[in-house]
Design a protein around this nucleic acid. Structure first.
Lengths: 220, 220
DNA sequence: GGGAGGCACTTTGAATGCAAAATCGTGGCT
DNA sequence: AGCCACGATTTTGCATTCAAAGTGCCTCCC
């Protein structure tokens, strides 16, 4: 999605690319993010890099220590559980609002994302990457459909966790099947314009994901 | 607490002061925040001002439109209601966690804030300002005591926003008395280490505040 | 008289320069 | 041998500078 990013400002482009790089696990948690090397990598000066780092700090992906610089935030297990518990509070509300406000286009997009995921049920790395991307977009569309800027930004602050962790549970067939079922059920609830149902499904979905994560982490 | 702010970096100092300025209603909602005048005001160059603006955008106090600059975010009534509904989701959770984790110092501080507010029950502007400050600190301490960085960052600016509407809120004796009662009750729940009770009280507190706000806005 | 176009001024966004703090390695001292 | 101090180097944070986009005003034409 979003093949064309106009990227009006360099700052925004850098923050996008850096966010992707962090989420894809390219940097170790705790690793220092030096402005010069990032600037070189993104073909800009240090100024937009610094602004991007401040923005990503707000999203919870990096820590900035004064006079010491930026680090990739560590995703310790307690922190990840924390993250999911907050999502479990916010996303059901987003789903409920989406049930009342989602546009036809948005519902169509959600439906097509479900169909895509159903059709691509492999376990190759590429298939898993697709699954992850579609899953992210699915949740992003629901949040967008909720039409609450505050909710959106609050959830952005709980931004994605490194995909390295996600592969842990996207490899699990059972979890994936359950997730797909939740998505289907959620679309159905949104179609039915039932906020209670949408919220309940979303809550179940998130809590289950949290448990799968805990299980995956314990299993190693 | 934190009477001395070391202000290691200029960027942090600017963001603090600018946050205060916005929350105190010094700028009109929708007003453009020009980097040169802010830099002049804070005695710095535009660079730290820009970083502060990015940070405050993440906190939801400012909107940045690419190539156009920063605006004070408007707190339209729908937006404020939205905000309170999110607080109503998050702060009860913060209170519940605080019930489990609050330190003795934190509980003492909460108790003393309640005492301070009880002792200073005037209606002069200065008294109201004190009430507002203590109320904000009360909520800040509870959130801090929850010990969840994600929750803290999601809630950072939210408690301060109603300061712009102080007249609506804090002049109403009934609301103020109820608020004080909630704070007392919350301290009691935290003392008793009862997360359920703490969450329930906090939820009531926030929902009541939302209704008071709606009422105040309709009443004019 | 009203609207479109153009020109000057303003403001943003990005690059660069510079001072201060932090980091790292080395050597000396106990 | 271990530890501390000190200097070189790196890196941050801020100021300044420059180009490009935006804004507003004024004129000219219809």
């Amino acid at each position: 999605m979003n093949a064309i990013t106009p990227s009006l400002t360099s700052s925004l482009r850098v923050s996008e690319e850096l966010r992707e790089a962090i989420l894809s696990g390219e940097f170790e948690p705790g690793e220092r993010l030096r402005t010069v090397s990032l600037a070189k990598r993104f073909g800009s000066s240090r100024t937009p890099v610094r602004e991007a780092l401040v923005q990503l700090e707000g999203e919870g992906l990096v820590d900035i220590e004064p006079r010491r610089g930026a680090l990739v935030r560590s995703f310790a297990s307690a922190d990840l559980i924390d993250l999911y518990e907050i999502r479990a509070l916010l996303e059901p509300e987003a789903a409920a609002r989406a049930a009342l406000r989602a546009s036809g286009d948005q519902l169509d997009r959600l439906r097509s994302l479900v169909v895509l995921s159903d059709a691509r049920a492999g376990r190759t790395p590429a298939a898993i990457d697709d699954q992850i991307a579609w899953n992210e977009e699915f949740h992003a569309v629901v949040i967008e459909a909720a039409g609450s800027p505050r909710l959106s930004s609050a959830l952005r602050a709980t931004a994605g966790i490194p995909r390295a962790f996600r592969t842990a549970f996207w490899r699990d067939d059972e979890h994936r099947a359950f997730s797909q079922m939740c998505h289907r059920e959620l679309v159905s609830a949104l179609d039915a314009r039932s906020p209670e149902r949408a919220a309940a499904v979303m809550r179940m979905h998130i809590v289950r994901a949290k448990d799968s994560l805990v299980e995956a982490m314990n299993g190693r």
